[in-house]
Every structure is written in structure tokens, then in C-alpha cells.
């Protein structure tokens, strides 16, 4: 496929590296946006998911809401947010947080729920407080599932962070949009390949973390809930 060859050549062209619009700069920007979005979403979604998983309350409502959130068209959401917040990174970041949310939430509650009930009951009978139960028993036992949710959310955000370029001079999406609009398909495809490569790196890294979390005695039979699967934007 000469199109792919051209795209690879575009990436390897030294002139496209370095400087404020170089591939290296764009890669870092993309990574930073991804990290910020996932971290912000996790800061809310994981505690909420843990709470639901631990108490078993509100599960139906939250699952239904998270499902509906998945159905929201991201570009529509982004434009609405942009009209409200103006151009810049805030609107895309918020849209990405919304995208990451369902996966992180599902991973968190499924992880906590998946902790072996026998182990939890035993810990409770030892006189552990609810806090201790969550932090010392449920979360460690369910960590692999929680990381599974994080992994899914990251994959989704890194792919969708291209939308940041819709409203700001940020990230690998710049190559996509510029290439698409001027029918410079090697440039566009180069952007896509770079995004995919970044996603691969992050995914491998998180898979490694996930494996480490699974530990010596996999009490939970699972490491990802299907609901933790990402929603594409």
C-alpha cells in the first residue's frame, strides 16, 4: 500500500521533527492531554465506583447513566462545550473526561464487587472498619479489574484526544485535521499511525501493571468487566 509507505516516509522525514509543530512536541502534547483527561475522570469515577461496589447501592442508576453517556456523540458534545467555554483546551478536555468516565466507573465498581466475598466477610469479622475493608481487602483484590477499566479508558482517550485539535493547537490531531482538509492523506495517515503507536505503548505498559496487580493468588476470575470497555468518540 503506497499510502502507508508515504505515511511512514512522512513520519521518518527529519523535517517533521523538532520545533513547536514537530512530531515530538505533538506526541508530548497528546500524551499530556490524555493523562490529564484520564486523571481527572479517575479522580471522580474511581471513588464513586468504589462506593457503589462496596455498598451495592445506586448500581442500577449509575450503570444506566454511564450507558447513556456512552451514547452521547462526542463531536456534538465537544461543540456544545466549545460554545459554552470558548476555544482552547478546556472544552476538549472536559469532553474527554466524559468519555473516560463510564469505563473507569465500571472498572472500579466491578473490581470492588469482584473481591471474594469470603475474604471480605473474614476481614469484617476480624473487626476491620469499612474504610479498612475497602483499602486493604476489596481494592487490592479487585485491583486488576480496576486497572482494566483504566486501560480501557486510556485507550479510548488517547484515540479521541485527536479532537483537541478541533479547538486548539494541540496534539497529534493537528496532523489528522490538516491532512484531511487539504487532502494530504500521507500526513493524515501519519497522524493516525502515531496515535495508534502511542496507544499501543500505553496499552502494553498498563497491561504490565495489570498483570503485576493480579498477584500470586488470583481470587477474582476476571480482570475486566465488559461494561468497562471504552466508548469510542
Amino acid at each position: 500500500m503506497s499510502l502507508f509507505g508515504d505515511a511512514l516516509a512522512w513520519i521518518l522525514d527529519g523535517g517533521h521533527w523538532g520545533g513547536p509543530t514537530g512530531i515530538d512536541t505533538r506526541l508530548w502534547q497528546h500524551l499530556a492531554v490524555t493523562f490529564a483527561a484520564v486523571a481527572l475522570a479517575a479522580a471522580v469515577a474511581i471513588p464513586l465506583g468504589v462506593l457503589i461496589g462496596h455498598t451495592g447501592r445506586g448500581r442500577l442508576v449509575v450503570v444506566a447513566t454511564a450507558g447513556a453517556v456512552r451514547a452521547v456523540p462526542t463531536l456534538g458534545l465537544l461543540t456544545l462545550l466549545g460554545l459554552w467555554l470558548g476555544i482552547g483546551l478546556t472544552a476538549p478536555l472536559l469532553a474527554l473526561v466524559v468519555l473516560a468516565f463510564p469505563s473507569l466507573l465500571a472498572g472500579a465498581y466491578a473490581g470492588v464487587e469482584s473481591a471474594d466475598r469470603g475474604a471480605v466477610d473474614a476481614a469484617r469479622s476480624l473487626g476491620m472498619s469499612e474504610w479498612q475493608l475497602v483499602l486493604r481487602v476489596e481494592l487490592p483484590l479487585g485491583a486488576a479489574v480496576v486497572i482494566g477499566g483504566l486501560r480501557a479508558a486510556t485507550l479510548q482517550v488517547v484515540a479521541t484526544a485527536t479532537l483537541a485539535a478541533y479547538l486548539s493547537d494541540t496534539g497529534l490531531g493537528r496532523y489528522l485535521f490538516a491532512g484531511l482538509k487539504s487532502r494530504d492523506y500521507p500526513q493524515m495517515l501519519a497522524g493516525a499511525l502515531l496515535v495508534a503507536a502511542l496507544a499501543l505503548l500505553l496499552d502494553v505498559a498498563l497491561a504490565f501493571v495489570q498483570r503485576a496487580c493480579r498477584g500470586p493468588a488470583p481470587l477474582a476470575p476476571s480482570d475486566a468487566a465488559p461494561e468497562a470497555a471504552p466508548a469510542k468518540g
Binding site: 479521541t160 485527536t162 489528522l176 493524515m188 495508534a196
Partner: peptide, 10 residues
Amino acid sequence: SLLYSVPALP
């Protein structure tokens, strides 16, 4: 599963 990371427009 990595196919998922390919942005939609390209």
C-alpha cells in the same frame, strides 16, 4: 483490540 485506537476519520 488495538484497531480500536485508530482514529475514525483516517
